[in-house]
Design a protein around this nucleic acid. Structure first.
Lengths: 116, 116
DNA sequence: GACTTAAATCGTATATTTACGATTAACGAT
DNA sequence: ATCGTTAATCGTAAATATACGATTTAAGTC
């Protein structure tokens, strides 16, 4: 998928934690940054679909394209896939979503976060 | 920025709400899907930086590149920029982050969400 | 083994993104 | 008006992403 260049901020006077967090968040966000992939993650979190073919049936995309999207999501940790006979069963990783939300929340400084 | 193709799921027997939510989430995620842009959003949410030049100083990127990233973020609603004399002051839109998190949370079906 | 089915990968065309230097536009100050 | 300064835009090269048909791989069945 082409690893993204990492940006390192010369950490200012206030000493921020050394984030590779920006990279992690960017990676996950980028992987989610396509409507088909959002749809796939949602589908899998709903638990109904699981098998690759089932997903293909629900999207207006060719099998090869869906497979590519699944690969992107898998590489970014959004989903996992295990072989089940002749087919592959994909599952969303709920902890990925939790992590993603946590990282997003971390964008806001702690002082602001306490308000909500 | 190149509008992304929208995926419409043939809504199943369970009648899901007609999501353009997938599109909205994908749009925001895509915009955030680069370390430099995550860094910019974080920087602006921290409140310290604001002026474009200040942001350029903190990133290892050329002015033109930063300007492009700012444009992407602005188009996706992550930030706003208002002219202040000869310079432009960018601000993060906290409601965008809130919306983003809300959309991400919406990926998980409501039944699961009540557990946390 | 031969055959079927499911999913991944290949090859490829097109579009988009990313980055930069150079230029332009906009503003304030002289 | 002219001069700096700041930010946007232009032009462009290189890299990535997207989509599809065709092919290959893998697993199960006969």
């Amino acid at each position: 998928m082409g690893t993204q260049k990492s940006i390192s901020i010369p950490l200012g006077p206030l000493e921020r934690e050394p984030d590779g967090n920006d990279d992690e968040l960017a990676r996950m966000a980028k992987a989610l940054g396509h409507p088909a992939r959002v749809a796939i993650v949602r589908l899998l979190l709903e638990g109904g679909e699981c098998v690759c073919g089932g997903i293909v049936d629900r999207l207006p995309l060719a099998q090869a394209t869906v497979s590519q999207h699944l690969k992107v999501l898998k590489e970014a940790g959004w989903i996992s896939g295990e072989v089940d006979g002749p087919r592959v069963c994909y599952c969303a990783r709920p902890e990925a979503l939790r992590r993603f939300i946590e990282l997003a929340r971390g964008l806001e400084p702690a002082t602001e976060r306490s308000k909500s």
